[in-house]
Design a protein around this nucleic acid. Structure first.
Lengths: 203, 203
DNA sequence: AAATTAAACGAACGTTCGTGCTATTTTTCG
DNA sequence: CGAAAAATAGCACGAACGTTCGTTTAATTT
């Protein structure tokens, strides 16, 4: 049972890469087998259905994301420095993970948002975890005294996610060379607003 | 040639709706014909290829977007009020256009961002037009004295687009009931930052 | 080295994909 | 109303889809 797991992981790594380009439903068993020079049936035997394959692709992608983005950032001090580290790594995680099609979670999100089933459920769960993590780090920034007391940490996480979505759009679709600069500015503005003292009630 | 155009538009309307759910490549001629109770070949004859169909779907969607979002907003005073009108209509245009799958441009953007060909080119062109329009309205806000002199209008447009992407994500994937509220807050923060006097160079 | 288990293969299944043809129906116009 | 033109339907195609089968090759255990 040793060899099996090994090739299964090889398959999944390739599948994650492929899915980042063509999506989870565009990801095809025939194409995947061809890329890996495996037979369709041999590959298929590792998973018992395409749905299982999709689920495992999501799981594998999540694992990679955590290794590349989250874990290293945890080495940074709590609060704002950690937030900055998360953002920096987040910005370029698809490069480090060698995902030629950009963030696979964004692709999957758009694909699955109006479908039902376990793949969607899994993705939602992963995304909520990620947003929770971001909100928690922001909250820590408050207790550490870096951010203002009345910061809405969940709104902050939401806005931060939006910045990343905007970046992907500008970078990948529009091919805007200023995309990364734009994202950094937007992030800086979020930070600045989080740091700023709450505005006085009147003028 | 009268009846032809009529049914072609009927087809395109349905195709836009369907594509909002399953994307431009998930959009299938067979499924479309079935939905409309037409024969596959009869439908196909209106377009000479699937690519043409996709192009026309994008064109039709753009037309609908302009009618629902842009044109009515132009009735508002220049600058900030117009911006507010654009935002409000943008937020709910998929409801008014009866697109059950959310914004078709977001779906298409993720699908096409790493492909080549006329469909991608068309989408990029449309999206740039839209961002330009947003930037122009923001710039007008400056000349009207509503926004600060040194506002980066293109950055503003970029950030605004990001807010909408964040909204779609929170609303459609996460089904967050606070999604619209979140988007409004983010937009308000952008406006506030645009209105605010430029910050002093030091403390 | 033999026996057993796991992994990969090749062929075929029923379906659907986009795309051609050739009829037939329907609309338009003189 | 009848002729020309346009719109639709019918049928077939090759390819690709996910999936199942029986068999062969390779790895692991005895």
């Amino acid at each position: 049972m040793r060899k099996g797991e090994l090739t299964r992981n090889t398959i999944l790594d390739r599948a994650v890469r492929l899915a980042s380009e063509v999506g989870l439903s565009g990801l095809t068993i025939g194409r995947l087998a061809q890329d890996l020079e495996l037979s369709k049936s041999g590959l298929f035997a590792h998973f018992q259905s395409k749905e299982t394959l999709q689920l495992q692709v999501l799981g594998r992608a999540s694992h990679i994301f955590i290794e590349i983005v989250v874990r290293p950032a945890l080495a940074q001090p709590r609060g704002e420095p950690r937030l900055q580290a998360l953002f920096d790594r987040w910005l370029e995680w698809t490069k480090k993970a060698d995902l030629p099609g950009g963030c696979i979670f964004v692709t999957a999100a758009v694909e699955l948002d109006d479908r039902t089933g376990p793949a969607r459920d899994r993705l939602v769960s992963l995304q909520k975890d990620w947003l929770d993590l971001l909100a928690n780090v922001a909250r820590t920034g408050v207790t550490e005294g870096q951010f203002r007391e009345d910061l809405d940490a969940e709104q902050f996480a939401h806005d931060l996610y939006a910045v990343m979505l905007g970046h992907q759009h500008a970078h990948r679709l529009l091919r805007d060379p200023r995309a990364t600069d734009r994202a950094r500015r937007a992030f800086e503005a979020l930070l600045e607003a989080a740091r700023r003292e709450p505005r006085r009630r009147s003028a």
